[in-house]
């Protein structure tokens, strides 16, 4: 056997091992899902858990079909999804803009530093009632909730990453007589892309929190409304259906951000 064949065999063995490992992981992941839903269904049928409170996968499924048929689920989901995506984008963009201002004007950053700490520590959802009164009980105030919840943390995290960019990269630009705007576009922003993407991932979750709380308060439409309505009429099947929809959609959004990450950060 020559060296080439030998290396090929070692490589094949390695790949076979990797493939097997992947299959085992997938297998157990599937087992967990199946077990969870089966146990839930069985426990509910045999009244080990209160079916009124915890419902069951089958009744959630039936409700899902009914709601799809009468088109209400689609409309509620579309509303919530639109609000969340808008809140997410607006929140992240304003946060990055604030971070840019702080980086551009160091004195502003020194001045507002304590206020940022206070704003960050404050629970933003507590602003909900004020927002709804100020902007009206409509989509605008819900989007504002989705955005406001992530603005401050985005500002702080992105600004910190702007500051932590190795000063020697700036030095390289300075020796070419670059302007401050060029520092920003050539170094600060691209060097911070990884951080910005990771705040995007955090913001996906935060925007959902903001939007759902907003819908609780406005109580007109959306998945948050479905939860609060189901709670009021004691229809927990409806609550759990909404929860599952939220889990599904937020995972998809998270995956999309992951895909964006791969697109944007080719190297580094």
């Amino acid at each position: 056997m020559n060296k080439h064949e030998w290396l090929q065999r070692i490589y094949d063995q390695y790949m076979a091992y990797e493939k097997r490992e992947k299959r085992i992981v997938r297998f157990f992941q599937a087992i967990i899902v199946i077990t969870f839903f089966s146990l839930w269904e069985i426990a509910s049928r045999f009244q080990w858990i209160d079916p009124l409170l915890f419902s069951s996968p089958s009744s959630i499924w039936h409700l899902f079909i009914t709601k799809i048929r009468d088109h209400t689920l689609l409309s509620h989901t579309t509303v919530t999804l639109t609000e969340t995506i808008l809140g997410f984008i607006v929140g992240t963009m304003i946060g990055v803009c604030f971070a840019t201002i702080l980086w551009w004007f160091p004195r502003v950053s020194k001045i507002v530093d304590p206020y940022l700490v206070i704003l960050n520590a404050m629970p933003k959802v507590a602003l909900g009632p004020i927002l709804i009164v100020a902007l009206g009980p409509n989509m605008t105030s819900i989007v504002a909730m989705g955005a406001i919840i992530s603005i401050i943390i985005t500002t702080i995290v992105v600004y910190t990453s702007f500051k932590e960019v190795d000063a020697n990269y700036i030095k390289v630009l300075q020796t070419f007589g670059a302007t401050k705007q060029q520092w920003f576009t050539e170094v600060i922003l691209p060097a911070s892309f990884p951080t910005i993407i990771s705040t995007l991932k955090v913001n996906v979750g935060l925007s959902w929190v903001g939007v759902i709380v907003g819908e609780f308060l406005v109580s007109k439409q959306g998945l948050g409304y479905m939860i609060i309505y189901g709670f009021q009429v004691f229809n927990f099947t409806l609550v759990l259906l909404s929860l599952l929809m939220i889990a599904l959609l937020s995972s998809i959004m998270y995956q999309l951000v992951g895909w964006l990450e791969k697109k944007l950060i080719k190297r580094a």
Binding site: D166, N168, Y169, K171, V172, T175, E186, V187, P190, A191, F193, I265, K266, R267, A268
Partner: peptide, 14 residues
Amino acid sequence: TIGYMLQHDYLFPW
């Protein structure tokens, strides 16, 4: 008219 070379290359990774 000045060129500056640093201890590390500081090539931009992106």
